[in-house]
């Protein structure tokens, strides 16, 4: 599997400045790539484009040479920086997990999701607790690629390393390509095999 971004130009509306200009990039499902860029570069926008939340103004996003599916399950899944904005506040957490498909008990245990949390609603959980649900949800279907956008900033060190170890194990086992966006260079060196440093190329 290969996820490709080919000569992509992107801006949010016609009068807005270009966020990405002539950007090309590819990742295979056996790779783990880290992205480091200054804030405001458009790292989140880059992820949104790759996961199909936004469509490029010019250029293409290709999965194995074909465009991303417009309907149904997208094999490119994104884990967001702000989990509290990524879940429906009106659903109990059990239903939120079901959005992602089947989640095994073992997975919940490894992520440290407690059973009593399942009946609660998202505003009553902390950021760190919610992020575990979001990770479980993203892994629940059968993604070929995972995009992790600053997913561990709200976690303490021990939880951070636990969650990353779990994620790396799953990614290896299921042959999922992983793209990690973070400010923490040392973290990226631990969890990815290749790091890309991006510089502002926008005039």
């Amino acid at each position: 599997m290969l996820l490709e971004m080919r000569d992509v130009f992107f801006r949010y509306h016609k009068k807005a400045p270009w966020i990405l200009k002539n950007m090309s990039f590819s990742i295979s499902n056996t790779e783990r790539i880290g992205i480091i860029a200054p804030s405001g570069f458009g790292k989140t926008t880059l992820c949104k484009l790759l996961a199909g939340y936004e469509t490029p103004v010019k250029g293409k996003i290709l999965l194995d040479g074909k465009p991303l599916p417009k309907k149904g399950y997208c094999p490119v899944q994104m884990i967001w920086q702000h989990p509290e904005m990524a879940v429906n506040t009106k659903l109990p957490m059990k239903k939120v997990l079901e959005e992602g498909g089947e989640i095994t008990e073992e997975m919940m245990k490894k992520l440290g999701i407690q059973k009593q949390w399942l009946s609660r609603f998202s505003p009553t959980l902390s950021g760190g607790e919610l992020q575990r649900f979001c990770i479980a949800r993203a892994l629940g279907g059968n993604p070929d690629f995972l995009l992790a956008d600053e997913i561990s900033t709200m976690l303490d060190l021990l939880t951070q390393s636990q969650i990353w170890h779990f994620l790396l194990e799953e990614v290896e086992k299921r042959k999922i390509g992983l793209l990690v966006v973070s400010h923490d260079i040392r973290l990226l060196q631990q969890v990815t095999t290749k790091q890309i440093y991006l510089q502002n190329n926008i005039s």
């Binding site: 060190l157 021990l158 951070q160 390393s161 636990q162 990353w164 170890h165 923490d184 040392r186 973290l187 060196q189 631990q190």
Partner: peptide
């Protein structure tokens, strides 16, 4: 557990 100190987990 710090990334620079081995990234160990429990």
């Amino acid at each position: 557990a710090m990334p620079q100190n081995g990234f160990h987990t429990t």
